[in-house]
Design a protein around this nucleic acid. Structure first.
Lengths: 230, 230
DNA sequence: CGCCACATTGAAGGCAGTCAAAGGTGGTGG
DNA sequence: CCACCACCTTTGACTGCCTTCAATGTGGCG
């Protein structure tokens, strides 16, 4: 993955001149993290923010007992920890690479200056933060108002819409993370996720083969995702 | 409550000239909602955003079965629905007045123009969104990783820090919303909240008299809020 | 081939939600 | 001023979803 290509398809930098992109690149530092490396920890001082070039990063919280709640998984071209630069002085969660990952790192000071000088970037930042906010509203809604089956169904619907391809049996796609990580993202644990998947399988709504999922009854899955009782 | 006073202590407009404040006021419309009035509904087209002048507004989600999750309660001087203007075209939740409420309403188009022209306001908006984001991270953490007692204790600690006064028995303050609304904000229902309060009372950690709370053992309350088992 | 992390399944227990009923409170109109 | 009513709050009994604990299965990789 090329650095400039990643920057250009990053919403935060869209609508900028090549000249400006070059300027932006100039204040950044490239960093590399092997799989499973901590990028920053909760409450650590927020000295900069990140753009993922390749690999993937999970942003998560931990309970005192060690249960993990994934807030978001960041893919190439996406940014993270922007908000930490503008409110408070620490990162609000943990960040860890899920695979070998390359990022661009932007030190707080120079990036804030850049934004001050560049109205277009301000607007992009507002759009980006607004989008994050909407995602968090969804997450809160799901955690508070829906059961695990509904959350799982929603996730499967979303993933199928974005990476599914129809086969003769239904819509087919692969989970892009391990099932225990998926459990963390859905606010539950792997045992419960396993049982929820099995229930959907037993009712012939989906098929599961390792990471491969086939949606057999899209309508039924959607109903469950909306929280309509079984 | 005076309109100009409310605008001036609104973080979104801080650092602006009086001239600019006047300009801002010019594009807004004043609206009044009796207690319990819907201001907008989920999925309704987002045509503007709001500043609360007086009264209070709850932003909330509803489950299909009618359970309510309050996302935030907005007090005078605070804004809401800004993010809806910059991502997607609909409001992501419901808004309803908790008391007789006056707001300033800013139509989307003219407000977006204002922001485009005013870099300081862009920065304020970024700060404001970043702050919201941090609050939502906390909410997700609490809902997913903490039990009702911990969430309640956290809430009481926060409220006591902001409006408590020490008496001879402990730190005293009043709940600023009804207990059923508090339950909704904590992601539970009034029966469960009632039992959680009773448990704290039985253990002589707090005293409860209607809306009046006295914290007798701050240390114990803090431990519970951190999720340390009883 | 054997290890190790991931995944699945079963049994048991707990926290919180549901249902139902009784007590309390504030506001309104007679 | 008081009585009534609507709404909020509390309590009890019960249910159920999810977690915990424990054990077994499985697949990829050195």
């Amino acid at each position: 993955m090329d650095i400039e290509a990643a920057l250009k398809r990053c919403p935060l930098f869209s609508g900028l001149e090549d000249r400006e992109i070059t300027e932006i690149e100039a204040i950044s530092a490239s960093k590399r993290y092997p799989k499973g490396t901590s990028i920053f920890s909760e409450d650590q001082e927020a000295k900069g923010f990140f753009v993922v070039i390749s690999g993937r990063v999970k942003i998560y919280k931990l309970s005192p007992e060690g249960k993990e709640q994934i807030l978001h998984i960041i893919s190439p071209g996406q940014t993270f920890a922007e908000a930490a630069l503008f409110d408070g002085s620490t990162y609000p969660a943990f960040a860890e690479s899920l695979a070998e990952t390359r990022v661009l790192y932007f030190p707080k000071e120079s990036f804030v200056n850049l934004i001050r000088k560049n109205p277009q970037m301000s607007l992009n930042m507002i759009a980006s933060l607004s989008h994050w906010l909407r995602e968090f509203v969804s997450l809160v809604e799901e955690l508070s108002l829906k059961d695990v089956s509904a959350r799982l169904s929603q996730y499967l619907m979303d993933l199928s819409a974005q990476s599914g391809r129809s086969s003769e049996r239904g819509i087919e796609f692969k989970l892009d993370i391990s099932k225990s990580q998926l459990a963390s993202q859905l606010g539950t644990i792997s045992e419960t996720l396993s049982r929820a998947l099995r229930k959907l399988r037993d009712r012939r709504i989906i098929e599961v083969e390792g990471k491969k999922i086939t949606i057999l009854q899209k309508d039924a899955l959607e109903e469950i995702s909306l929280g309509i009782p079984l």
